[in-house]
Nucleic acid binder design. Structure first.
Lengths: 226, 226
DNA sequence: ACGCATAACTTGACAGTGTCTAGTTTAGCG
DNA sequence: CGCTAAACTAGACACTGTCAAGTTATGCGT
């Protein structure tokens, strides 16, 4: 795929059809180009400094062009964020694949993936929970976020004794998710917390490991009513 | 100035000094009026829809007026958020005052205050962690946020055995804060989480109570290295 | 009692934003 | 080969935050 990034100068043959053209009226792969531009803008200016027109500029296209592919800003950001959820989901799977098979190890893997993803993709992660800039009516976004949630929930449920697995362990899921999410967001946008923990992604990772290990007994009897 | 009706309708006496005046050029208490307006705008349009000019409109003042008191938008929002931290700090104290004196009860009170505050003050709470819209160089904001943090940290530390209290229980603080913060933010801007928990503030409160109770053993030996 | 410096506010301008609408180019299909 | 419809451009609109320059009124020093 033409995924080589940085399509700055239009290195000639990059459109679907118009091979010889140096510059063509039709971009050819504007959708993808805009999504890549969005990432660049987000990295450079943060979520707050994100601008549709700046994306268009980077894709060397007029400011009205994005509308044709995404409708409006929320459309673009929703599509962008759908990819984010897909990646997080995939990262969780990858971490699990590299972990031991027991329920706790599988669960811990998803939690660590969550935190690592957040720390490694600051604006991407922040956007995933800025509901005011997203449209969860977007099917791909709704599907991806639901799938991600389910993977997390499943690894929690799998820690229950077999016959307890019919009921949803609400408290356990909430605990795990809150922990991972709180740790991630506080690391990303609270100075005091970041200083407390040590600042970098490595510290967050080992801290999460410690917390999960400590909290282990809480999960393994999660489900039976107190 | 071709303004014929110089006396625009102004809601009569509302200034601090100019009592008899029907309309005064000077507002008299614009600072406070703008902060109140900010709250109204935030409640109506959310953090994303917040606008400085809209605040000015509500305070029946020109769009340039706020600059004189707050410099720029971040100035106003920082001052607004300083108050938010002060209120959260006060709410924690109030909850603690109504709780038992033992260390765990005091700690749980701060956690519950955190969650209740968030759920009862959505945009206010959200703003407190939108570092891109705040200026933590603002002294009042920095002081208030630090004080709030310290209260939370102290109630965690107080759960340690006396002679362990010299070291900062980083893990315990991180665990508690992450839990409270994650639960709060997820309730506020994640549909799936809110549905899982039940949606309203009451559910969040009792869930937090349960989680704190469950996690109790984790805190009480927090500090001694694993 | 009264100037008058200056704080408090207004007004207008500017660059920039997202979205709409109407026009232009071109791809691809019959 | 012609033509429809998709892809993109260009300009306009209402709105934003900030700045600079003007206007009004307060209260302080004398």
């Amino acid at each position: 795929m033409a995924r080589s990034g940085a399509a700055v100068r239009k290195p000639s043959g990059q459109q679907k059809k118009a091979r010889g053209r140096v510059s063509s009226y039709h971009h050819g792969a504007l959708r993808e180009a805009l999504l890549e531009a969005a990432e660049a803008v987000l990295l450079e200016h943060g979520v707050e400094g994100f601008t549709l027109r700046e994306c268009a500029r980077r894709a060397r296209v007029s400011h009205g062009a994005p509308a044709h592919h995404f409708g409006d800003v929320r459309g673009l950001l929703s599509e962008f964020t759908a990819v984010s959820f897909e990646r997080l989901d995939a990262l969780m799977s990858a971490y699990r694949a590299r972990s031991a098979a027991d329920a706790y190890a599988q669960f811990a893997a998803t939690g660590l993936a969550y935190v690592d993803f957040a720390l490694a993709n600051r604006p991407r992660f922040q956007l995933m929970f800025r509901s005011d800039r997203l449209d969860f009516g977007n099917e791909r976004l709704a599907a991806a976020s639901t799938r991600t949630y389910r993977q997390l929930a499943d690894t929690v449920t799998a820690m229950l004794p077999p016959r307890a697995r019919t009921r949803v362990p609400v408290e356990g899921i909430a605990l795990a998710w809150s922990l991972a999410h709180g740790l991630s967001t506080l690391m990303l946008d609270n100075r005091l917390f970041a200083e407390l923990v040590g600042g970098n992604a490595g510290h967050a990772h080992t801290l999460m490991q410690d917390l999960l290990e400590r909290a282990r007994p809480l999960f393994e009897d999660s489900g039976q009513q107190r």
